[in-house]
Design a protein around this nucleic acid. Structure first.
Lengths: 249, 249
DNA sequence: GTCTATAGAGCGATAGAC
DNA sequence: GTCTATCGCTCTATAGAC
């Protein structure tokens, strides 16, 4: 059974939930590494990019996006001038425009890149007949590891949402709603099979969503309190269990 | 015992936690209404405002701030031009500058106004010898009602934090940390007096903070799911209880 | 020589400020 | 309404790879 309803993207093998919940297991199962990640970003926008040589393009794309994350993380995307970006990325103003169509386009590319990747992972993800609680655990750990790997992307899309075109805004919000719907469905499925009781699946789901988002919204807090990602993932899952009544089973 | 360590602001009677947790009880106890709220904002910045007649100044301040919230809620503060603001508020560009020193000043005024009000409420708040759980309940309900009343202020300070001067940024974050510290302290106090056990007060506190913030960060979600403020406050408190082990008492 | 990538001065528009 | 700084963006000359 697929996690979500959309058909899998062809030409890509189905992924499965990692058997354990270690970070490295996720990287392996989802074949995530810096090289093929940035390459896939380039391929996504290939026809809009004027540079042909993929090594050069990939390298510069990475520079541009990383510089954008850095600057807009400090002063915000709107306050970032393309001269700032040129300086930080080491790419001339003219050069920038062989990668992006416009400044707004750059923001859209970031949103699109993140959503594309999330879609890839969630659409091709195959649940191996997991029980509701295991499924929820997998989705919590999975979401957190995605956020860890793509932290600046998530943060950017959250904070700069308003600067995006309306349709992009809606699609970005849809990701959150889709995640919540999956959690709610799992909760209801668990209730129907009498594994636990859950008084308010809607509120519990949005609680979990809020907790997960903290990981990219307030990384300083976790550094301050010296909480590691696996620790936090465990806590979030525990927090979900605390919201359930499992006394009758 | 005072909730927080800072001395009370003189010339203002001490507030106390409302006996019940209805919205109107908070308004009454904290004497919150639109008129005296905006008046207090004006008085806070009186010496920086060139308009002397308080009725006029209060009315225009309200127009300016409300228009700022409206526009920056849609396109962000950085993307809002003073011409936008002039149009929306109905105050000429020259007129704006008799209330604000600069555009950045306006953002600082908003942050300062919110913090001033939070300080007023929390500093003057007198706990009536509440037990840890009652104290936590009061602080959860109180925080949510503050957010409800000053929703655009909270939202603005969260989303536009990066645009503020560094010292303002730090002070704004301090509010969150201060709140969390209060929750943590109450949790530890409850544990020391053997009222409950709490494995990880730090994480539970930040979970509650995250949940509360949702109320101003994602109001659309609660409208969509038709959750009222009292319902949500109840849920947040319940969620806190779920994070405690009360079996041994 | 040819094709691709880059540099950076320059343009018009619009911002904040008074 | 006016001033000035700076914005997003373009255009062309040039450098370098093969």
């Amino acid at each position: 059974m697929r996690v979500l309803s959309k058909p899998p993207i062809s030409g890509r093998a189905s992924l499965s939930w990692p058997r354990d919940t270690k970070e490295s297991a996720f990287d392996e199962s989802w074949s995530f590494n810096d090289n093929n990640f940035w390459l896939s970003v380039f391929e996504m926008y290939r026809e809009n990019i004027q540079i042909k040589k993929s090594e050069i393009a990939v390298r510069n794309l990475q520079k541009i996006f990383s510089a954008t994350f850095k600057i807009s993380g400090v002063k915000g995307f709107q306050a970032m001038s393309l001269r700032d970006l040129s300086l930080e990325s080491g790419i001339s103003m003219g050069g920038l425009y062989s990668y992006i169509g416009s400044k707004n386009d750059l923001a859209s590319m970031i949103e699109g890149g993140l959503r594309h990747h999330i879609d890839l992972v969630t659409n091709n993800l195959v649940e191996e007949g997991l029980k509701p609680l295991d499924s929820l655990k997998a989705v919590i750990f999975g979401a957190l590891y995605m956020m860890e790997r793509l932290s600046p992307w998530y943060y950017f899309c959250f904070m700069e949402l308003k600067g995006l075109p309306r349709d992009k805004q809606e699609k970005a919000l849809e990701i959150e709603l889709r995640f919540e719907r999956f959690v709610i469905d799992s909760l209801k499925r668990g209730e129907q099979t009498h594994m636990f009781k859950c008084e308010n699946p809607d509120l519990l789901a949005s609680q979990i969503t809020a907790q997960l988002q903290q990981w990219h919204l307030k990384p300083w807090k976790f550094k301050l309190k010296k909480i590691s990602l696996p620790q936090y993932a465990d806590y979030c899952y525990q927090s979900l269990l605390n919201g359930l009544d499992r006394s009758s089973v």
